[in-house]
Computed example of a mutant assay.
Amino acid sequence: AYKVAKNARLTLVTDMLQKGISRLKQYEKPLLHSDQGWQYRNCHYQKLLANNGIKQSMSRKGNCLDNAVAENFFGLLKSEMYHGQFFQDADELIEKIEEYIEYYNTKRIKAKLKGLTPVEYRNQALQAA
Rank of each mutant, 00 (worst) to 15 (best):
Q36I: 11
V69G: 15
Q85Y: 15
H33C: 11
I97M: 12
P30S: 00
L49D: 10
G37C: 04
S34M: 00
A68N: 14
E120C: 09
K55P: 12
Y104A: 00
I97F: 06
I54R: 00
K29Y: 03
I101A: 03
S59L: 07
R23F: 09
I97E: 05
A70W: 15
K19N: 10
D89W: 11
I109E: 03
G20F: 00
R23N: 11
G20P: 03
Y82M: 14
R122M: 01
K29G: 03
N72M: 13
G62P: 14
A111I: 04
Y104N: 14
A68I: 13
K29D: 02
K19V: 06
K110T: 08
Q85A: 03
L31F: 08
L49R: 15
D66P: 13
R41K: 12
K112I: 05
I101G: 09
G75F: 01
E71C: 08
N52L: 06
S59Y: 05
G20W: 02
G37L: 05
K55N: 05
S79E: 02
G53P: 04
Q85K: 12
Y82K: 14
Y103L: 15
K47S: 09
M58F: 04
E28N: 01
W38A: 01
A50I: 09
L76G: 10
G115P: 11
I94F: 12
L77G: 15
K107L: 04
Y45E: 05
H44Y: 07
F74V: 08
E99V: 05
I21G: 10
R122K: 15
K110C: 08
R122T: 05
G115A: 12
L48I: 06
N105C: 13
I21M: 08
L48F: 02
K55I: 03
Y121V: 01
K61E: 01
L76Q: 09
L32M: 11
N63M: 00
L116T: 15
N123F: 11
N52E: 01
G115E: 06
N51T: 00
D91E: 06
G115K: 12
G53R: 02
G75M: 00
K55L: 06
K61G: 04
P30K: 09
G115T: 15
Y45Q: 01
I94C: 09
Q36W: 13
K47H: 14
K25V: 00
E98M: 02
E102I: 05
R60Y: 09
Q88S: 07
S57W: 00
N105Q: 11
F87Y: 03
P30F: 01
S79D: 04
N63D: 00
Y40A: 03
E120H: 12
N42P: 08
E71Y: 08
P30A: 00
L48A: 01
D91I: 00
L77E: 10
S59K: 04
E120F: 02
G62N: 14
A50C: 03
K25T: 09
D89F: 13
T106H: 13
K96W: 11
E71K: 14
M81C: 13
N42A: 05
L48S: 02
E28T: 10
I54H: 06
K78S: 14
G37V: 09
K114W: 13
M58W: 05
I97S: 12
C43L: 15
Q56T: 00
